[in-house]
Design a protein around this nucleic acid. Structure first.
Lengths: 211, 211
DNA sequence: CTTTGCTTGTGAAATCAATCACAAACGAAC
DNA sequence: GTTCGTTTGTGATTGATTTCACAAGCAAAG
């Protein structure tokens, strides 16, 4: 089955299904129903079925879905059947936190380049990598065949960094800088803005008791 | 004007408008049109107008919106007309990165408590705070009148931590642990899952060239 | 005071996403 | 091999969000 257009939120739910499937597999279950998946994933059974049906028909009526096979299929669908080579720009505290976080490696993402423009940081040894000068970014991105970029710099540098990444051939960027990046539409861009998350909490707390 | 129900995405756009308004104010502009706001915020003029119209009528036809007044109003709407007291649970690398990030203070969020259960971390001095034992969380949350919690712990501890936060009276939680938290519906919960963000990039790269 | 050029505010329309509801399919039991 | 209980896959429906399109309103110019 060939997906016409999958909504961003449906893709994110696929990631959740994967986590839940991991848990079921660990628990030794061999089949799950859409109801089981929905229960642990926090959505409705109908939504689970619709999401999965976009990519094919993986279940057996009356039985449910075979856990390990579905896990493999979802892994494949999400593009996690291979490893991804990631470059991290910004060797500050947040950059370090992401670099040393194990969860990425576990899901198939290898940070194979770290960049900064601060002379104090350049040359630092991070695990088995060395922090590179942003000047060398183009060269290193090609040499290490980096496919995705994570931007963890102050807002002001984010746009030029994004431009450099894209010029070097990177097609997907995860941006933590609190600024809106302008990129060509073919470039995949996701933003994580921590200030906005907190502000959304503030809004909710402020308006919860009847305006 | 009394908002009936504002969508989560509309609230997030309000945060963006605020950033754009800051930029315009800094640039000395006194009025902006919905088109100006849309241009820099990356949405359509109609959406800007509809979003703002949920909360009242702030503009003048033919002229646009008065920058500093609109900025004040949006600040007020988002609940940023006051400071918020935040507790941070998890004194690891990511916790430290968030703690030392200045952007929060700038937007009105003060981290006034840091907690961990690792004896090596407890007692560490962070800025003008000391990392507290999670055992003391209930006491400190009350003493410091903490209103929001940020969870930056491994997945396994996140649910019990959330329960403790809520038991202590916290009504809004920002969760960075890669696990789904179950909380009462009155509790406001936002999740930031970095693995999901990367997986969404992987999906996009995998499917961009016609399946 | 009237005209002109803009821009808001907002119902109506269109698009997009989630839910419903049910026929079809399967295994197990007998 | 028929019945029963269960669960999928999906067209139809409902609901939410975004976009459209235009009347109403304002300032400036003459």
């Amino acid at each position: 089955m060939r997906p016409t257009k999958i909504s961003e939120s449906a893709v994110r739910r696929l990631s959740l299904y994967l986590r839940v499937l991991d848990a079921f597999e660990l628990a030794g279950k061999t089949t799950v129903s859409s109801g089981d998946l929905a229960e642990l994933g926090g959505m409705t059974p109908a939504q689970v079925r619709k999401d999965l049906s976009h990519f094919g028909s993986f279940g057996k009526r009356g039985l449910g879905y075979p856990v390990s096979e579905l896990r493999e299929r979802v892994t494949e669908i999400l593009g996690l059947g291979r490893r991804w080579r990631v470059g991290l720009v910004g060797a500050g505290k947040l950059g370090a936190a992401l670099f040393f976080y194990d969860g990425f490696r576990g899901q198939g993402f290898d940070v194979v380049g770290v960049f900064d423009n601060d002379p104090d940081k350049i040359g630092q040894r991070w695990g088995r990598l060395v922090v590179e000068d942003i000047e060398s970014m183009d060269r290193v991105i090609h040499a290490a065949r980096i496919e995705m970029g994570i931007i963890v710099t102050p807002a002001a540098s984010a746009q030029p960094i994004a431009d450099l990444l894209i010029a070097a051939g990177v097609e997907a960027i995860l941006n933590f800088a609190p600024t809106r990046l302008r990129v060509r539409p073919e470039i995949t861009l996701r933003n994580v803005n921590l200030e906005i998350e907190l502000e959304s909490l503030a809004f909710a707390l402020t308006h919860e008791n009847g305006v």
